[in-house]
C-alpha cells in the first residue's frame, strides 16, 4: 500500500498574533463573553452540556441571533428534533425574531431527521454553504445516539463529524445532556475533538432550583474556574459573571 505523501507543515511563528491571540466569536450573551476571555476563539467547536431546562436551546438561539444582528455573521441551526416553526416560536418567546433573518438568508434552520450519519454530514455541509455561515449550531446532540448501534462506530463517526465541522471553519456549538449525577459524553466528542466545553446546570437544592454556568475547557483561553449564577428570563440568558454562588451545588 502506498504511503500517502505528507504535506509540509505550515511554518508557525510564535510571534504571529493570530496564534498568540485568536480572533474571538462573541456570543453576545450578557456576562458569558467575560468568562471566555472575550468570546469563543474563532473556528472552535464547543459542546454546551446542560441539565434539562438549563438553557441549552436558548444559548443556541442567542448565539445565532446575536451573530447575525450584532456581529454580521450568518448562521445555521441544524435541528435534530424540533421543527423550524417550533424553533422560531421559542426564539420569539425570548424576544429574538428569527423571521426577518431567515427571509434575508442570514440565518437558516434545517431540521434533519435522517438516521444516516453520512447524509447528516452532507446536509450540514450543504446548509452551511448555502448561507455562507460563520456560526453553526447542532441541537440536540444526544440524538446522535440514535444513529449508531455500536459504540466504536459511533466514536469514529463523531470524530469524523468534528473534523468536518472544523474544516468548514465556522464556530460551532453542539448541545449535549448532562447532569451532576450522570455525565453522558457524546462518544468522546468533548474529550477528544471539542475545543471547548461549557456546562449549564439547573440544580435542585432543597426546595428550589438554581441555575449556574461553568466553562470546563476552552482552548486558547484563560477561563474562570468558578461556577457563576445564570439567569434565564424573558430576554434570554444572562450570566452574572461578577457574582459568585453562595450555595454549594
Amino acid at each position: 500500500m502506498a504511503i500517502p505523501k505528507k504535506e509540509p507543515l505550515e511554518e508557525v511563528k510564535f510571534e504571529d498574533s493570530s496564534v498568540a491571540k485568536p480572533n474571538r466569536t462573541q456570543t453576545g450573551i450578557p456576562g458569558l463573553d467575560d468568562l471566555l476571555g472575550g468570546g469563543i476563539p474563532e473556528g472552535n467547536l464547543v459542546v454546551v452540556s446542560g441539565d434539562p431546562g438549563a438553557g441549552k436551546t436558548s444559548f443556541c438561539i442567542e448565539f445565532l441571533y446575536n451573530g447575525v444582528v450584532k456581529y454580521g455573521e450568518n448562521g445555521v441551526y441544524i435541528s435534530l428534533e424540533e421543527s423550524e416553526p417550533e424553533i422560531v416560536k421559542q426564539a420569539a418567546y425570548y424576544g429574538f425574531d428569527f423571521i426577518p433573518l431567515i427571509k434575508d438568508r442570514r440565518l437558516k434552520i434545517e431540521t434533519i431527521q435522517l438516521y444516516d450519519f453520512e447524509k447528516l454530514k452532507n446536509a450540514i455541509e450543504e446548509t452551511v454553504d448555502s448561507v455562507k455561515a460563520r456560526r453553526i449550531v447542532i441541537d440536540p446532540g444526544v440524538v446522535f445516539r440514535l444513529f449508531f448501534e455500536k459504540e466504536l462506530e459511533a466514536r469514529k463517526s463523531i470524530l469524523d463529524l468534528g473534523r468536518m465541522l472544523k474544516r468548514l471553519g465556522g464556530t460551532t456549538i453542539i448541545t449535549n445532556e448532562i447532569t451532576l449525577e450522570n455525565s453522558h459524553s457524546l462518544f468522546g466528542l468533548e474529550e477528544y475533538v471539542a475545543d471547548g466545553v461549557v456546562l449549564l446546570y439547573h440544580t435542585k437544592i432543597e426546595n428550589r432550583f438554581i441555575r449556574s454556568v461553568g466553562v470546563l475547557k476552552m482552548r486558547g483561553t484563560k477561563i474562570s474556574e468558578k461556577l457563576h449564577p445564570l439567569e434565564l428570563g424573558l430576554n434570554g440568558l444572562k450570566v452574572l459573571s461578577k457574582q459568585e454562588l453562595f450555595e454549594e451545588l
Binding site: R208, P229, L240, Q243, L245
Partner: peptide, 11 residues
C-alpha cells in the same frame, strides 16, 4: 421571591 435568593439580593 424568597429569603433564599441570596444571589438576587446581592445583585
Amino acid at each position: 421571591e424568597s429569603p433564599q435568593q441570596l444571589v438576587e439580593l446581592s445583585v
